[in-house]
């Protein structure tokens, strides 16, 4: 016997759950970033390939969640925030993982050599990018609480603070990446020109991860806008 109950059909799965599930995978993905470069630094190809594999798998899992969410968002839904903002948020979250995947791909496809002179600045940059991702992750983790309080009031301040920190850290990574680039150009004569180009790209990509994290924070702020 089927139920004539419209309640079961009325209450759809909250879209904030997949958003959080997704960001957790993204966080695992970005956590591989320092491992990738450590492996490169140590010249450990196996470690690098393994990390790249994990990134690949995490990214496709995240992709699946993103697509599921998109396909299960009919226009008839009554949502506490704009439907468009939810869809934007998930694709921006996905952008973080995508960029990490791009980095991992480049590192595995081309046998890159890490110039020792870059390492001090580069490792600082990577760690700050990691912090930026962590802030984005923590901000999204407040979504279930935000839903409970209706996206405003005392609790939403916590989210705002987190996003403010996120933006400050992202600004820092901008400076840091400029410094790494400057360092790269200062030793460019001693490097193979093709490598310089690729390292320049890599530095940009690393900074891009933080950029994407900031985009996540910005979209989340739309949820809190009155």
């Amino acid at each position: 016997m089927k139920t004539t109950n419209p309640l079961a059909r009325l209450l759809r799965r909250s879209p904030f759950e997949p958003l959080q599930e997704h960001i957790r995978l993204v966080a695992l993905c970005t956590a591989e970033l320092p491992i990738l470069f450590e492996a490169l630094h140590e010249g450990d190809r196996i470690k690098l390939e393994e990390a790249a594999d994990r990134v690949d798998r995490l990214e496709s899992k995240a992709d699946k969640i993103k697509n599921d969410l998109r396909y299960h968002m009919p226009k008839t839904l009554l949502l506490p925030v704009a439907r468009r903002d939810i869809l934007t948020l998930i694709s921006r979250q996905d952008g973080m993982a995508d960029t990490v995947e791009d980095i991992a791909k480049l590192l595995t496809l081309r046998e890159m050599e890490l110039p020792e002179a870059l390492w001090p600045e580069l490792s600082v940059l990577i760690s700050r990018v990691g912090d930026t991702c962590e802030h984005a992750f923590q901000a999204i983790e407040t979504l279930d609480e935000l839903l409970e309080v209706g996206f405003r009031g005392r609790y939403s301040k916590k989210t705002r603070k987190r996003v403010t920190k996120l933006k400050a850290t992202e600004a820092e990574t901008d400076h840091l990446s400029a410094e790494v680039a400057r360092r790269l150009f200062s030793i460019e004569k001693s490097l193979d020109p093709v490598s310089v180009i690729f390292w320049n790209d890599l530095i940009k990509l690393i900074a891009e991860v933080a950029n994407r994290a900031e985009n996540v924070g910005d979209t989340l702020m739309l949820f809190l806008a009155r």
Binding site: P6, L10, S14, P80
Partner: peptide, 28 residues
């Protein structure tokens, strides 16, 4: 049942539920 649906909608309008499918209203 229909009143309960209305009541759940009230919670939803207070931005308290993740997603409510308004198609149900049409069905009702």
């Amino acid at each position: 049942t229909h009143i309960l649906v209305g009541a759940v909608m009230g919670v939803g309008l207070a931005r308290g539920v993740g997603a409510l499918d308004l198609q149900v209203i049409r069905n009702i």
